[in-house]
Simulated assay, not measured.
Amino acid sequence: MAANRKRSGTLDAAERNAMSDSTFAFPRLRKEPLNDASHVRNAIARFDQVRDASDEERDEAFRRIKRAAKRYGVEMTETSWRELGKPSRTMKSSDKPRTPNKATRNQPRSERSRDDVYAEAKRRNIRGRSAMTKAELVQALGNR
């Protein structure tokens, strides 16, 4: 059972309590353990969610996370703790949520892109949409 827990990156209360304070990004608060690559990635993603930490503690936590990232081979592009937990500055336009403009919404579904038809299916909560072709999406939307 312990082997499964290690693979999934979870810690139970006993394991967490057995860890030394220095294993955490925020030792005083015992927040964000840095005992493996999965926890380091989690600490990076959730850094801005930690409450009751001073700027000095955040500076130290950032240094701890950088050291742990290097130790466990986690790529880290942020240069300041103020960037952690925030969306990437280099978000591609294809990553942004698609909102069809008025002209697109007025087109017949068969003339729209699959992404636009899929976005409508998602808004309308069509089940199984991710496995559907454009034609199947159009048919599913037409029946509602």
Rank of each mutant, 00 (worst) to 15 (best):
A140T: 05
T90P: 00
P33C: 04
A53H: 06
R129D: 06
A13N: 14
F62G: 09
R7M: 10
S93D: 12
V138Q: 02
F24Q: 14
R124Y: 05
G9F: 12
T10Y: 14
F26K: 11
R51M: 11
L141F: 01
E57P: 10
E56H: 05
P108M: 06
R5M: 15
H39L: 10
E83T: 04
S94E: 12
R129S: 13
G85Q: 09
Y72W: 10
R98M: 02
S94C: 09
D55T: 10
E75Q: 11
K102Q: 00
R127T: 14
S130P: 00
E15P: 10
E60W: 05
T79L: 12
T79N: 14
A68V: 13
D48H: 08
D116L: 06
N125Q: 14
E78Y: 08
A121E: 10
R144K: 09
P87F: 02
R7I: 15
P108T: 05
A18T: 09
A25T: 11
F47V: 05
A53G: 05
R112A: 10
A45K: 08
A37E: 10
L137F: 09
P87W: 02
R112H: 04
S54N: 08
A13E: 15
Q107D: 00
V74E: 08
P27H: 06
T10R: 15
T90A: 08
G128N: 06
E111K: 13
A131H: 09
R123V: 08
S54I: 10
T23H: 11
K122R: 14
D116W: 01
G142A: 06
R144W: 01
K86L: 08
R51D: 09
T90C: 02
S54R: 04
R109A: 09
L29V: 07
D48K: 08
S94R: 09
A103R: 14
N125T: 11
Q107E: 07
A14W: 05
S80K: 06
M76K: 07
R58Q: 13
K96V: 07
R51Y: 06
S94G: 00
N42E: 02
R16G: 02
D59H: 13
R71K: 15
N42P: 00
V117F: 06
R105K: 15
A119F: 05
K134P: 07
P100D: 04
L34H: 01
A103G: 02
N106P: 00
M91F: 01
P100W: 00
M19P: 12
S130C: 01
V50K: 04
R123G: 01
R64M: 10
R63E: 14
T77P: 04
N17G: 15
R144V: 05
T10W: 12
T90N: 09
T99Q: 03
A13G: 03
R129H: 13
R58M: 12
